[in-house]
Simulated scan of single mutants.
Amino acid sequence: MRIVAVVVTFNRRSLLEKLVARLGEDVASGALDRVLVVDNASTDGTGEWLRGLDTSSPSGSDYSTNLRIEHRTLDHNTGGAGGFHEGLKWAIEETDADLVWLMDDDGLPAEGCLERLTEETDLDFWGPLVVDEADPARLVFPIRLPGGTRVVHDVASAAAAAGSRRLDGIVIPFNGVLLTRALVERIGYPRAEYFIWGDDHEYRLRAEAEGARIATVVDATVLHPSVGSLGTPMMFARTTYNHTPSDLKHYCMARNNTLNLLAYRGWVHVLLFWLKTVWFYLFTKPQPARIAMSARAAYAGLRGDFTGHERYLK
């Protein structure tokens, strides 16, 4: 099985350098065929560093030839959605990959992660636990267990829930996940127009709709910086809302979540999401301007306009 890693990066050169070095170990061992890096028009020297890999390495040998590191720099920032669209298309249409290993530049697969993932041979879309690099017993992205409302926040709880060594029916994309060529050829590529927030979720929902076999392997891990709490309690702590101080992220979340819910859950779930948004920014964290922004984002998405987020780019 030929496995190709796809890494999407933007302005995180120091993290990318560590990740490329780690993936280079898997290439050198033969576990990984090559690494494809998609640079989203970074402005921090990432492009120059990547080009330097073509001719030199710390040892003075040809780093990219020996470790098979390939890279492309896009002409503008397309977000994670555009980066993964480009990278997955590159891997499927221009390499002989049987499996594609997708990850952001801020993840770092633990030693043996890929080997453990590839022990699972009956899946289409699967990945590791994503753990806090400062506290590896804690999950960076909590997991809602399939078939209920219980959410686990630590590795021990996830492992206990798994029973065996994996949780079927759930995966956290795009953080070290494996995809089969056959699945990608069935469902296509991530929606580039989403930019950020919701593109990975939509891709998982699309895979589920096509009957993909999905799982999280609980004894494989990717280290990741903490992102803080991903759910702000609201409605007297009966539910949570994914609030972010970033206008860019909120705009994309309001637009993309509306479209995802409409496509895969229906209008009732869309209306409930809008109700939560209004409640949250009226009573939980009063910011009436966010309600207007959410309405503009949702309306734009329903009209097929995916340019509105550009006003919030810096």
Rank of each mutant, 00 (worst) to 15 (best):
A212E: 10
L167W: 01
D96R: 15
D219F: 07
S229C: 12
D54V: 09
D124V: 00
F125P: 08
L50V: 04
Y63S: 12
P58C: 07
S42Q: 01
G211Y: 09
L271M: 11
A31N: 15
G112W: 06
I143A: 12
I69S: 08
L114R: 05
S29A: 14
L108I: 04
V8E: 00
P225Q: 02
V131A: 12
G82N: 07
F280E: 02
P128G: 03
D200C: 01
E70F: 14
A158T: 04
A91D: 01
F141E: 05
A207L: 01
E193R: 09
R13N: 09
G147H: 04
V140F: 01
L205Q: 11
T118A: 15
L282W: 07
V131Q: 10
A182H: 10
G211E: 10
L129W: 05
G228F: 06
R68D: 13
T78R: 03
D168E: 14
P58K: 03
V8K: 00
D154V: 08
G45P: 07
S61Y: 14
L178I: 10
V152C: 10
M103V: 06
I196Q: 01
L36H: 02
E25D: 15
H309E: 09
V8C: 03
D106Y: 07
I170Y: 15
R12G: 00
R290I: 07
T277D: 00
I170F: 15
D39P: 00
E48R: 03
